[in-house]
Design a binder for these strands. Structure first.
Lengths: 233, 233
DNA sequence: CAGTGGTCTAGACCACCAG
DNA sequence: TGGTGGTCTAGACCACTGA
């Protein structure tokens, strides 16, 4: 099964995936060691190594020193999706983006926000409510709480020109975060903003971000029924 | 700024991330070329190359031939989450898992299924409806369509013992897929299965998977209000 | 068309861990 | 303790693309 043409990581990877999907190598079984594959596929061990590391990263194989590489039994599949700036989300769907700041106020954190941030939660936060529009129709309503300590400059930022969503994405260099998806009944504020009837189903994304151990912001984003978020396996 | 100790991809990556997050390299600016970094960091160009490729994969930098590597302006962050087997999902939340097969029937594909599968959609599919329970309470209702061509054995599988969800995950070695999340009003069937009132909000996950170009299965999973799906940035 | 990243190679040594 | 994957290196050539 030598390949006659030139080899590369991609083609090696493709060939290995073929063997995995064709059932040539069964789940749980040991596959040949890197050195042998390199000889068989007519390339260097480094190339095989990089291909196998990719496959391991995707969860298709499990690698262990000394004992070799095995086909993963029940691969834990991971899905990924992009976190877009809302403006881009609207524009990608062909709409004209605009937004309205409905509330800007320094307030003490409600319980749910404190719970999200944990021990490190500051007492006083900036509370923002923003309606994002597509062609002047409600697209999404966001209820956001921002820690002013970790976001210097936000109090002076022209949030009417650039939404807090976009401002934060551009200013905060790196962070970790948690996201929760759920279906909810719209509360009164959300229903009014999105021009829905009370208790209409809304799609909620809750996102909380930190930089190192310090909380940055937590936000509840509400989309009307009909909105779909796409991810890939 | 030479590092005195031995270097490795990890430490190179760490140092580069430090420069990015400390603002030493500002968004949009050009960073030194691989060769120079290799000299400065006292390692080979290959090592720098691999570290930079990882950072590019994470979206922290943008690389182009000839023009060099730049700090990403507004990093498109990716979120990831695991796709669990429903049984494990229930058990992880401390419930006792069981399931009920409500429907098993070969049927012709409705329009929405054909739309999902595209041109390659077979005419006749296996239609399954399954209710997943946690401690005998409804947890999730799934409406699934399976291509029997690409899933040999499913017609004989004891789906009362092992749900189609679990059976497919274990049997299908590798696949790509699309997932859509949305909030919906429960239809009559879903409402009855989940013991909800009509038009109650439900969280819907639609998942379609293929192996290479051939469709495997498409499924609509419905969770009652209150269910939250977690992902990480 | 020249400079930059993309990739490959052969060889080497190290780290881990099952036999 | 030996076999396997993990990683590093120096050098080479290729592919793309902006000046």
């Amino acid at each position: 099964m030598k390949t006659s043409a030139t080899n590369s990581i991609r083609s090696v990877e493709t060939e290995l995936i073929r063997r995995l999907t064709d059932g040539e190598w069964l789940p749980g079984s040991l596959i040949p060691k890197e050195e042998d594959l390199a000889i068989e596929l007519n390339c260097s061990r480094t190339t095989v190594n990089r291909a196998l590391q990719r496959l391991a990263g995707e969860g298709l194989v499990v690698r262990k020193r000394r004992s070799g590489t095995r086909v993963a039994v029940a691969p834990d599949k991971k899905a990924t999706f992009q976190i877009p700036i809302i403006r881009k989300e609207v524009e990608n769907r062909g709409g004209k983006y605009s937004h309205l700041v409905l509330l800007t106020k320094r307030q003490s954190a409600p319980l749910w926000v404190q719970a999200r941030f944990g021990e490190r939660s500051p007492r006083t936060l900036l509370h923002l409510q923003t309606l994002h529009l597509s062609d002047s129709h409600p697209h999404m309503f966001e209820d956001r709480w921002v820690c002013t300590q970790t976001t210097p400059g936000i109090l002076e930022a022209p949030l009417d020109d650039m939404s807090a969503n976009e401002w934060l994405v551009q200013k905060v260099p790196y962070s970790r975060g948690e996201i929760y998806f759920s279906a909810q009944r719209a509360d009164a504020t959300t229903a009014r903003a999105l021009e829905l009837s009370d208790a209409a189903p809304v799609f909620r994304i809750e996102r909380t971000t930190w930089i190192e151990q310090s909380p940055i912001t937590t936000v509840r984003m509400h989309y009307p029924e009909g909105y779909r978020l796409m991810a890939e396996l």
